[in-house]
Amino acid sequence: MNSATPGIPVIIVDAANVVGSVPDGWWRDRRGATERLRDRLSGLAATGMSQVDGPVAVVMIVEGQARQVASSATVTTVPASGSGDDRIVEFVAEHPDRRRIVVTADRELRRRVQALGAEVFGPSALSADGTR
């Protein structure tokens, strides 16, 4: 399932924020930490999260050193040319007819995407599903 599949909900993961929410040494290898997150998210496309039934599209917005992280069969990576937060807001705005779920702990980003009608969950919503 890719991010372009119409009609199904899309889970949009703020990769930098979610990776940064766990002090496990991610700062030594941002790209590797983002690749590990992508791999942990791979099962979400079929199952969804406890708050969102599958199937879903899973999109990870990547920025900085993690921009080169490739998509997998079930997780689409979208590189941000500038701010990852701005790219997330753009992505949400580009898909007004879909249920959009943003995973982030960033308060300002939460406010911006909720103003566009998106739902927001913190990074712990992923750990409840065994993805972290």
Rank of each mutant, 00 (worst) to 15 (best):
S3N: 15
A4W: 09
I12Y: 02
V13P: 00
D14L: 06
A16I: 02
N17L: 08
V18A: 04
G20H: 09
S21C: 06
S21L: 04
P23D: 15
P23S: 13
P23T: 07
G25H: 06
W26N: 03
R31T: 13
A33D: 03
L37P: 06
R38L: 12
R38D: 03
D39L: 05
D39R: 09
S42I: 03
L44Q: 02
A46K: 14
T47D: 11
G48P: 01
S50H: 12
D53G: 11
D53H: 06
D53Q: 10
P55K: 09
A57I: 03
V59A: 14
I61R: 01
E63K: 08
Q65G: 09
R67L: 07
R67M: 07
V69Q: 04
A70R: 15
S71Q: 07
S71A: 09
S72K: 05
S72M: 07
S72I: 06
T74R: 13
T77V: 11
P79K: 11
A80V: 04
S83R: 02
G84F: 01
F91L: 14
E94A: 12
E94Q: 07
D97F: 11
R100W: 05
T104E: 07
A105L: 05
A105E: 11
A105N: 15
E108L: 10
L109D: 08
R112V: 12
R112L: 14
V113T: 07
V113M: 05
A115N: 15
G117C: 10
A118G: 03
E119L: 08
E119K: 03
V120I: 11
F121N: 10
F121G: 13
G122P: 00
P123F: 04
A125T: 00
L126A: 06
S127Y: 07
A128K: 08
D129C: 13
D129H: 08
R132S: 14
